[in-house]
Design a protein around this nucleic acid. Structure first.
Lengths: 346, 346
DNA sequence: TTGAAAGCGATACCAC
DNA sequence: GTGGTATCGCTTTCAA
């Protein structure tokens, strides 16, 4: 089976004129008579002509498309970012091509090769948690590929970046727990090495400093963000629960970590927030109807996507090389619900 | 700024040989000497050569890529389907291009035009809820574009289809409510016209027939699946609650509808399942930790994506026109939790 | 064993 | 006003 769309040559043959005339007529060139334009445009519309983007890309080395590299589409936060990117890109006539890394460095390298050879005009990327060596990206950037980082950024590459205020978000969440009389606060977060992990950990630490409380190393657990991380999370929770000085609150990141933590606590019959307060990072609409309603840090995904796309398109359209880059920091929102209500234990 | 990847001509020039020799060497042609191959391959690897897909697509009218058209990436069910599709497509060397319709007919038409002119080899589609006229699809199919429908299918187009057993899923969910002593069962579902809406409604009706219970028209509410449907859902719930013969159970579809229903019931202080049982259609990992844990119909998204992709690739690879099509029906799973526990009211 | 040339679709420079 | 031709990167005859 083979499918072929209508081309300029098809139109030219059908109307018994040359391909160049058709091309010019379609682009409304002043060289072409009104009558010819009329005929060509009518025929083109009737036969649903659309230029072949592959030919255009080949011809101009530009494709009016941008690549997006994210860890996983299943994460609602990233899905919202994509929607934000698309809303801007489509307005400017750009198509978007999405590639997932599933938290694998190899997949990231492969996806990016795929995308760049598709002649994308720019790249939006949130790194995989396995990515430490960024030479594959630095390589492209130095060759002039416009690139913008979002959410998970690298400090080794100088370009525009858009992040949420992970430090402040974690600080606020942790401080909120202190304010509500919790003092033994555990933090279950993503793998070390990620910018978001570091920033959140720093916020968590800062809150402890503010409250003149020592950070307990055993209270900090790193889990991977891959699909099969449930066992890891379960182990982390069990270890926390078995500590002699058991935490009275858990501050968790990501949807999977948060929902798994809640499931375990419920299963063990641990009352939330009575015996254990919980705060999560989540954009899920279900947060408000969890048992109990979950205090959560909400990240403006759609907005982040829009900002990142605008910055990328400004790079793509810039005639001269850009050397001054900015890092946009978007505020997070702490939405307080019952899961972190004032502790009555102390 | 302009970014260019290395081409066959670049390699040819650098090595002082012809482009055709390079091309053949890269494809390991028997015409080329081992030594030349060695030199070319080494150089190509070192300089990270990858063929330009636009050139390939233009040359062969095939792109080793397939298009996916879905309503929204934010729906976790569709995100899972995409992962399923990718897992199959990547294994076979195909790239995937995703387009969202956001439930708009115009966006659907536009996206599909975009995709087909990118020389995709096949199309996987789940229709928008606004799509009644399918001539844009029939057009492509008749011209030979391999096409597979999934989830939301059209009965006006003859091709492979993959669906979940919406009839059985709705039947089981409704029957489960009857079994647990509920008899005034409301159904809040998607817009009329969608295959999934009809099938679920039929399952709901069948359950009523089995239990010799009349279906009450006022108990059936249709809401759109767009992003801004909260007001609609709120109105539907309020109307249900104000009925003289108020329902004692709600069977809802989709994540937004389900979470909004739960939020409203909680806000109004209506006990679940004491005063109102709830069953939802959701794949969210949060279902188990909702207040109360939600009985839900789980749809095998990943599997659906895999099946659909395999069927599409079989069409793409088939040398002769395929005229016998199949409709794969995947079973759903009713996961029983507290939100539909046995009623003690009756 | 290697290379020159045609062609995929669209555009732009030049002729006419 | 219109049409021929080169070009983008790649593959595939065909010729050397």
């Amino acid at each position: 089976m083979n499918f072929k769309a209508i081309t300029i040559t098809d139109i030219a043959k059908a109307l018994n004129i040359s391909a160049s005339t058709v091309s010019k007529a379609l682009s409304d060139s002043y060289e072409i008579s009104a009558k010819t334009k009329q005929i060509v445009l009518t025929y083109a519309r009737e036969h649903n002509y659309r230029p072949n983007p592959n030919a255009i890309s080949l011809k101009f080395g530009s494709s009016l498309s941008i690549g997006i590299v994210i860890p996983s589409i299943q994460n609602q936060f990233f899905a919202q970012i994509i929607d934000g990117i698309e809303s801007v890109a489509h307005d400017e006539g750009f198509t978007v091509i999405i590639a997932q890394t599933h938290e694998s460095y190899d997949m990231e390298v492969k996806s990016i090769q795929q995308l760049t050879h598709r002649a994308i005009d720019g790249l939006l990327i949130s790194q995989s948690s396995e990515t430490f060596d960024v030479s594959h990206l630095e390589n492209l950037r130095s060759k002039g590929l416009p690139m913008v980082f979002f959410d998970r950024v690298s400090d080794q590459i100088d370009t525009h970046k858009v992040v949420t205020d992970n430090f402040q978000g974690a600080l606020n969440a942790t401080q909120h727990l202190f304010d509500n009389n919790y003092s033994r606060i555990a933090h279950i977060t993503g793998p070390e090495g990620l910018s978001i992990t570091t920033d959140r950990l720093n916020g968590y630490r800062q809150a402890h400093a503010q409250n003149k409380t020592q950070v307990t190393a055993d209270y900090i657990k790193h889990c991977s963000y891959t699909n099969n991380n449930v066992a890891e999370i379960e182990r982390a929770v069990h270890e926390l629960l078995q500590l002699p000085d058991r935490p009275d609150a858990i501050f968790a990141t990501s949807d999977t970590i948060t929902s798994t933590v809640l499931l375990l606590l419920n299963k063990l019959g641990i009352k939330i927030p009575g015996q254990m307060a919980v705060i999560g990072f989540t954009n899920s609409s279900f947060a408000a109807v969890l048992a109990p309603p979950l205090t959560s840090v909400f990240q403006p995904g759609f907005l982040m996507g829009q900002k990142a796309a605008r910055l990328l398109l400004s790079l793509v359209k810039s005639k001269k090389a850009v050397t001054e880059f900015e890092t946009v920091v978007l505020p997070m929102q702490l939405i307080v619900r019952e899961s972190s209500s004032v502790s009555i234990q102390v």
